[in-house]
Design a protein around this nucleic acid. Sequence first.
DNA 1: ACATTAAATTCGA
DNA 2: TCGAATTTAATGT
Length: 237
Amino acid sequence: MTAPARSLRERARALTADELDAIAWLHVLAPGDRQLALDSLVVANVLTGERICRIGGPATYWFGVIEGLLKMSNDGSGGAAITFTGVPPGAWFGEGTLLKHEAYRYNIEALRPSVVAGLPVAAFDALLERSIAFNRFVLNQLNERLGQFIAAREIDRQSHPDVRVAHSLAALFHPVLYPGVGQVLRITQQELGYLVGLSRQRVNEALRALQGAGLIRIEYGGVRVLDLAQLRRYQPA
DNA sequence: ACATTAAATTCGA
DNA sequence: TCGAATTTAATGT
């Protein structure tokens, strides 16, 4: 029933033209550097619940989400403070770990069937060595992510459910970190509740409030953002 | 927890 | 391969 876990390398396939097009950093590379990346990039389909990487595992790839939704859990050993982050399409992660050639510091698993790409660590290193544009991309991404983490701490201390949902949603719509999301985020109310730490019913209520305020539109299996700036600043009336 | 609606899948031509 | 019928998933109350 559940397929045996196989590594990304083993189940790798070629990327389609559309998938390549959706990888933002490929477009900033010079032709020679892009070719280097293309020669080593791999992609695989993963099933719901499949583990992409685990805490302590050797850093083998810089991972990117082409399609679907992943969850990053940052739990210390022993069930203490656990934080979940949704990882939507367009996201690339793991560069911190790769830079230091350390082990992964979080677990990543698929929340639904997804398509995940991987750039092997050797190619990642090579691009850092020879491409200024690639360095700039990674640096910018690290900077944006730092802002996300600071914001995430604020979200966690917000007790008002509508505010938590609004700010968590706004984070997932981050255009630099998650360029694959666009105007419509594919996420169910169930999944959102799981990430934010609320019941599905309460998420539904919060989404309706946000829709009433004209900030989003609820769609079947997803949410369309109408006013991202306002969503970020949302406070209850 | 239940009713409703949307989407995905199956099946028969 | 088309579309109606059925099943599954998501939403709203």
